[in-house]
Design a protein around this nucleic acid. Structure first.
Lengths: 327, 327
DNA sequence: ATATTCTGTGTAACCGGTTACACATTCGGA
DNA sequence: TCCGAATGTGTAACCGGTTACACAGAATAT
C-alpha cells in the first residue's frame, strides 16, 4: 500500500505539502502541485479514508434510522437518501429501530463512536435525552418536531382535508375515518385535517383508531362495516389500512366504488396495483428524503441554513376506489 | 476524550496491557485485569473504533448491494441482513446499484478503501473482473453463481414447477407463462421449472417475456389476453408481474379465478393485499438474507465453511386467484 | 542443577493521514 | 529603503489504537 510518505518522497516534497495539495488547503506552488500530481499518478496513490477520519473525525457516512424498512413507506425514502447522499460523496448506513428507544439509542451511540457525520431519523422519540445530547447534525423526517432539529414533513393536515373532500364531493353521506395511532404526530395531523373538512360538512361520520397494518385494519373495518351498513365512504390514514378496508369490503360483498368509496393516504406503489386502483393522497416521499439529505449535508458541512421546517406538498391521485364527480 | 493511555496511567500499567485486556489477547494477570477494569470504569473509557480500524483494517461494517431497495423484494432482505448483522455486532451499508456495473464497482472500491469487512450482493455482474479481484469476503444472493463466491438462493426451478402444477391441477387448458428477463439467472431457473412441469402435461401453453414491472406487465398481458381468449391460467415469474396480469384481466372484464387463474412467484406482502389474494410461490426472503449474513460473517471471521451453495425452500401460498381443486 | 517453556509486562514502532508552528522568500506599500 | 503581509514549505506532534519484540520471573522437564 502506498502512503502519503511514499508520494512525498517521490515528488521531492514533504508530507505536509502533499496533504495540502490533496486537500486543496493552504499554499502549494504550481511546481509542487505538478510534482505531487505526477507522483500520485505514477504510484497510483489512493488516500486512506480511515486514517483521515482518525484526524478529522469525519467519515462521509450518514445514518438513516427508520422504524422498519419493510414498511412500504420507507424503501422509497431510503432510495432518495441514498441517491442524494451518493451525489455528495456520502454513504448511507441503514438502521431499523422498530420504534424501540433502546435500539435507537444504541445505534446513535455506536455510530457516533465511529465518527458518523449525521443522522436522518424517523422516530417518535426525538425529545428523548439521547437526542438532545447528541451534538451531531440530525434531520427529522415525517415525525416529531423539535425546535432544535430541522424537520421535513408532508402537509399532513391539509392533505387529509383534501382527501376528505374527495369523499364529500362524491356525495358520501356517512364517512368512516380510520385514524392512525395516537402517538404518531402525522397521524394526529391527518386527524385534524379530517376534522377541518368534515366539521361543517353536515355529513355523518365515525372515527376508529386503526394501526397502519393490513390485517389489523381488515379486521377492524370488517367489524365496523357489519355494524354500520350505512357507511358509504372510508378515509384511511394510510394506504395500507385502506387496503385492509378494501379487503374487508370485498369479503362482505360490498362493491367499491358503487356502494362504498375509499381514499387512502401515502401514495405507495401498491395503491396502483390494487383493483380497483386506490384513490389516495400521495406524499412525495422521494422528495422528502432528498430534501432531508440535502439539509443534513449542509449542516454537516457547516453551511448555515436558518430554515427549520420543510413542508412537502401532497398530491391527490384519483383512481378507481372513488367515483367520478357527479354534476 | 479519554484514551487508552489515560487508562494505562490510571491503572498503573502499560498501554499494551490495557489493549491486551480489552481484546482478551495475550497474557494479562488477574491483578492487572482488575486494575484496568477499574480504571476503565472510573474514566468511563470507550474504545475508539476508528483508531482500531486503522490498525486492524476491520470496521464491523458490511455492504448490502441491491439493484433497487424500492423493488418490493428487497426491503425484507435488507431487514434480515440488518437484524442478523446487529446480532453479531455489524452494521449495514445500503447500496443501490440499479444493475449498473459502474455503480457497483464504484461502491465496491470506495467501501473497500474504508476497510469495510465484506459484501452481500444481488447482482448479475458477479463474474465481472472487479469481483474477482476483490480479495474481500462476498456472498451472493439470489442471482448468479460463481464457484468462488458462496451463494444463497431459492430452489427456483422446483418452485416454478410447483407453481405450474397448481394451475394444471386446477384444470387449466391453456397456460400463459410470463417469463422473466433472460439475463436473470433466477428467471431462467423458473423457466426451466415451468418447462419441467408443463412438458408432458398435455396442455397448451404460451411463453412471453415480461419484465418484473407492474405497468409493463399489465400492458403485455392485456395484449396477449385480447389476442388469445382461450388462456385460462397465467403463471407469472414474479408477484409484481402477476399483479399486472390481474389488473389487465380486470380491465378486460375477465373474472379471476372463474375464467382465469393466476399464480405468482416471490411472496411479497402485497400479494395478500390484492383482491382476490394472489396465489403464489413464496420465497423465504428473510431466511435468505439471514443465511447470507451468517455465511458472510463466518467468512469475515475466518471460520472455515466448506459449503458453497445454500438453497432455501420455497413455500406455496394458495389464495384467491386460484380455485379450489375439483375432485 | 540446568535448560526450556510459560506467563506477564513494557517500550516503541506502526497504522496513514492532518496540521500547528517555525522559517524563508517574495512582493506591495509607505 | 524598510516593513508587514502574502506565499510557500518542512518538521514533528498528533489522532487513538495494536503489536512485534525484548526482557524477566516462575514453572516444568531432564
Amino acid at each position: 500500500m502506498t502512503t502519503i510518505r511514499d508520494v512525498a518522497k517521490k515528488a521531492g516534497v514533504s508530507v505536509a505539502t502533499v496533504s495540502r495539495y490533496l486537500n486543496d488547503s493552504g499554499y502549494v506552488s504550481g511546481d509542487a502541485a505538478k510534482a505531487v500530481a505526477a507522483a500520485v499518478k505514477e504510484l497510483k496513490y489512493e488516500l486512506n479514508p480511515v486514517a483521515r477520519s482518525l484526524n478529522t473525525k469525519k467519515t462521509n457516512l450518514i445514518g438513516l434510522i427508520v422504524p422498519d424498512i419493510t414498511n412500504p413507506f420507507f424503501p422509497e425514502l431510503a432510495r432518495a437518501v441514498e441517491d442524494v447522499a451518493l451525489t455528495y460523496g456520502y454513504t448511507v448506513i441503514l438502521c431499523n429501530s422498530d420504534e424501540n428507544p433502546e435500539k435507537e439509542k444504541n445505534y446513535l451511540e455506536t455510530l457516533k463512536k465511529k465518527y458518523i457525520d449525521g443522522f436522518i431519523v424517523t422516530s417518535n422519540q426525538l425529545d428523548a435525552p439521547h437526542y438532545a445530547n447528541m451534538a451531531l447534525p440530525i434531520v427529522a423526517l415525517d415525525r416529531a418536531i423539535n425546535e432544535h432539529i430541522p424537520t421535513v414533513a408532508s402537509n399532513n393536515r391539509e392533505g387529509a382535508a383534501i382527501g376528505t373532500r374527495v369523499l364529500l364531493e362524491r356525495n358520501c353521506k356517512k364517512i368512516l375515518f380510520l385514524r392512525g395511532p395516537e402517538e404518531l404526530n402525522p397521524a394526529n395531523d391527518r386527524y385534524e385535517g379530517f376534522m377541518d373538512a368534515i366539521r361543517d360538512a353536515g355529513v355523518d361520520y365515525q372515527i376508529v383508531v386503526c394501526p397502519f397494518h393490513f390485517a389489523d385494519s381488515e379486521k377492524i373495518v370488517d367489524e365496523v362495516l357489519r355494524e354500520h351498513k350505512d357507511i358509504d365512504g372510508i378515509f384511511a390514514s394510510s394506504d395500507v389500512s385502506a387496503a385492509g378496508a378494501l379487503k374487508a369490503a370485498s369479503k362482505l360483498g360490498i362493491n367499491v366504488p358503487d356502494e362504498l368509496q375509499v381514499v387512502g393516504f401515502d401514495g405507495i406503489a401498491m395503491g396502483a396495483m390494487l383493483t380497483p386502483g386506490l384513490t389516495t393522497v400521495a406524499q412525495d416521499v422521494y422528495k422528502m428524503g432528498a430534501i432531508a439529505t440535502r439539509v443534513l449535508i449542509k449542516r454537516i458541512e457547516n453551511q448555515v441554513e436558518e430554515q427549520h421546517f420543510f413542508e412537502v406538498p401532497v398530491q391527490l391521485k384519483i383512481r378507481g376506489t372513488t367515483r367520478s364527480v357527479e354534476k
